Measured scan of single mutants.
Amino acid sequence: KKKIKIYIENENGEKKTIEIEVEGDIDEIAKELAKKYNVKIVKIEP
């Protein structure tokens, strides 16, 4: 498992940072999160 930080922006332009532990393809997981929460991924840090 890797701990990563995902910087997101919602439709109101509010920026947030999510810190999660992931296993597998980080890009795939980030895309799923973006779709699920309707946010834009700004940056992903390993």
Score class of each variant (00 low, 15 high):
18 I>T: 01
37 Y>K: 02
45 E>R: 04
44 I>C: 05
9 E>G: 02
19 E>A: 05
25 D>F: 04
14 E>N: 07
34 A>D: 00
21 E>Q: 06
4 I>T: 03
12 N>I: 11
34 A>E: 08
46 P>Y: 15
15 K>H: 13
35 K>Q: 08
31 K>T: 08
16 K>P: 01
5 K>R: 14
1 K>Y: 14
12 N>G: 07
37 Y>E: 03
40 K>G: 03
11 E>I: 10
13 G>P: 00
33 L>F: 14
14 E>Y: 12
42 V>R: 02
23 E>D: 12
27 D>R: 09
11 E>P: 11
1 K>R: 13
33 L>G: 00
18 I>F: 13
32 E>V: 11
29 I>N: 02
38 N>F: 06
9 E>L: 13
35 K>N: 06
16 K>N: 11
36 K>P: 00
16 K>T: 12
39 V>P: 01
26 I>V: 11
31 K>L: 12
20 I>H: 01
19 E>M: 07
10 N>K: 13
42 V>Y: 06
36 K>V: 05
2 K>W: 15
22 V>C: 10
42 V>M: 07
19 E>Q: 07
45 E>Q: 06
31 K>P: 01
7 Y>M: 08
14 E>G: 07
5 K>C: 09
9 E>N: 04
1 K>A: 09
17 T>L: 07
8 I>C: 12
21 E>H: 07
2 K>P: 07
10 N>H: 13
22 V>Y: 13
10 N>C: 14
27 D>P: 04
44 I>P: 01
3 K>A: 07
43 K>I: 10
35 K>V: 05
4 I>P: 00
4 I>N: 01
30 A>D: 01
23 E>H: 10
40 K>D: 03
9 E>F: 07
43 K>D: 05
43 K>W: 15
32 E>T: 10
2 K>C: 13
30 A>V: 15
44 I>E: 02
15 K>E: 11
40 K>L: 09
45 E>V: 11
37 Y>S: 02
14 E>A: 08
35 K>P: 01
32 E>W: 15
5 K>S: 07
2 K>S: 09
2 K>F: 15
19 E>G: 01
42 V>W: 06
23 E>W: 14
28 E>M: 10
9 E>M: 13
43 K>H: 09
23 E>M: 11
10 N>M: 15
41 I>D: 01
11 E>C: 12
30 A>Q: 04
14 E>H: 09
45 E>S: 06
39 V>M: 13
22 V>R: 04
5 K>Q: 06
45 E>Y: 07
44 I>L: 04
16 K>W: 15
30 A>L: 15
26 I>C: 05
21 E>P: 03
18 I>Y: 14
36 K>N: 04
31 K>V: 08
15 K>A: 12
31 K>Y: 10
22 V>N: 05
35 K>A: 07
25 D>P: 07
26 I>W: 13
21 E>A: 07
27 D>F: 13
44 I>S: 02
45 E>P: 02
40 K>R: 08
13 G>Q: 04
17 T>S: 07
22 V>G: 06
30 A>C: 13
17 T>C: 08
37 Y>T: 03
3 K>I: 10
16 K>D: 11
6 I>R: 00
11 E>W: 15
13 G>D: 02
3 K>M: 13
24 G>M: 03
7 Y>L: 09
26 I>L: 10
29 I>K: 04
30 A>W: 08
14 E>C: 13
7 Y>P: 00
39 V>S: 13
19 E>D: 07
34 A>G: 05
38 N>E: 03
14 E>I: 09
30 A>Y: 06
33 L>Y: 15
17 T>E: 06
33 L>C: 08
5 K>G: 00
39 V>N: 03
8 I>V: 13
22 V>F: 12
10 N>Q: 11
12 N>C: 13
1 K>N: 06
2 K>D: 05
13 G>V: 00
17 T>H: 08
41 I>T: 02
16 K>H: 14
32 E>H: 10
26 I>T: 04
10 N>T: 15
8 I>M: 14
29 I>E: 03
2 K>I: 13
45 E>G: 04
18 I>R: 01
9 E>C: 10
24 G>K: 03
26 I>M: 06
38 N>Q: 07
20 I>A: 05
43 K>E: 05
1 K>H: 08
3 K>E: 01
38 N>T: 04
1 K>V: 10
25 D>Y: 04
22 V>T: 10
22 V>A: 11
23 E>G: 06
33 L>T: 01
12 N>K: 12
28 E>D: 10
45 E>T: 07
35 K>T: 06
8 I>A: 06
40 K>M: 09
28 E>I: 08
33 L>P: 00
26 I>G: 04
40 K>T: 11
41 I>P: 00
44 I>M: 05
33 L>H: 01
46 P>M: 15
38 N>A: 07
19 E>W: 08
24 G>C: 06
8 I>G: 02
35 K>Y: 07
1 K>M: 13
26 I>Q: 03
38 N>C: 12
22 V>H: 07
